[in-house]
């Protein structure tokens, strides 16, 4: 068989390379990499990576298989993000007025599977209560499209974050 002329081979290689590159989302890969590795003491699962933006991996682009529609981490006190609000109930309301309640686990993580509920954005959080049913704060803004609450509620407040999600302002009240 005759070997293809060199320019044709080059074109073919370039097309293949372009095809491969088109399947790679470098931005997403960088976001995943920025999260770092797993904590060796915590196996991958519902308790892992509290405080991190869950939807980077659970938003449909992988590498996680489970897809979340809404997810985050809630802490007991706004002035101390080391105490998880285990058992807290987070209420989510979507743009159609539909509600969903989700309970935070032992590390404060909560998530709603996309297969269970896909809210119509924008969503908001009208209520968050601890395991005793106490709590008076609500979200005062909309979440227009980020299902990952921790994307905006980072552990450190700053010009681009209001800080972590909390149930009470401080242990001594609020």
């Amino acid at each position: 068989m005759r070997r293809p002329p060199l320019p044709c081979a080059l074109l073919l290689a370039a097309a293949l390379a372009a095809g491969v590159m088109a399947c790679v989302d470098a931005t997403h890969d960088a976001q995943v990499a920025a999260l770092g590795g797993e904590d060796p003491a915590v196996p991958a699962g519902p308790d892992h990576r509290p405080g991190q933006p869950c939807d980077v991996c659970h938003g449909g682009e992988g590498p996680a298989k489970l897809q979340f529609s809404v997810s985050g981490t809630t802490f007991m006190y706004g002035d101390n993000s080391s105490v998880p609000a285990s058992g807290a109930t987070v209420q989510i309301e979507d743009a159609t007025g539909a509600f969903w309640h989700v309970t935070a686990n032992s590390v404060g993580n909560f998530f709603i599977l996309k297969s269970d509920w896909s809210p119509v954005f924008p969503i908001t959080c009208p209520s968050i209560q601890d395991s005793q049913g106490n709590g008076s704060y609500s979200m005062t803004t909309l979440d227009n499209r980020a299902g990952s609450c921790n994307a905006c509620h980072t552990l450190q407040a700053g010009p681009n974050s209001v800080g972590p999600i909390f149930v009470h302002r401080s242990p001594d009240g609020g």
């Binding site: 924008p122 005062t140 803004t141 909309l142 979440d143 227009n144 499209r145 980020a146 994307a151 905006c152 450190q156 407040a157 700053g158 010009p159 681009n160 974050s161 209001v162 800080g163």
Partner: peptide, 28 residues
């Protein structure tokens, strides 16, 4: 909101209370 145009990377950037702040200490 912080997930939309309250981000410095947007072409249309919006600042204000409950969103992106100009003062780095404002939210903190």
């Amino acid at each position: 909101t912080l997930d939309c145009h309250g981000q410095p990377g947007r072409n249309l950037r919006i600042w204000g209370a409950n969103g992106m702040r100009l003062d780095p200490e404002a939210s903190a």
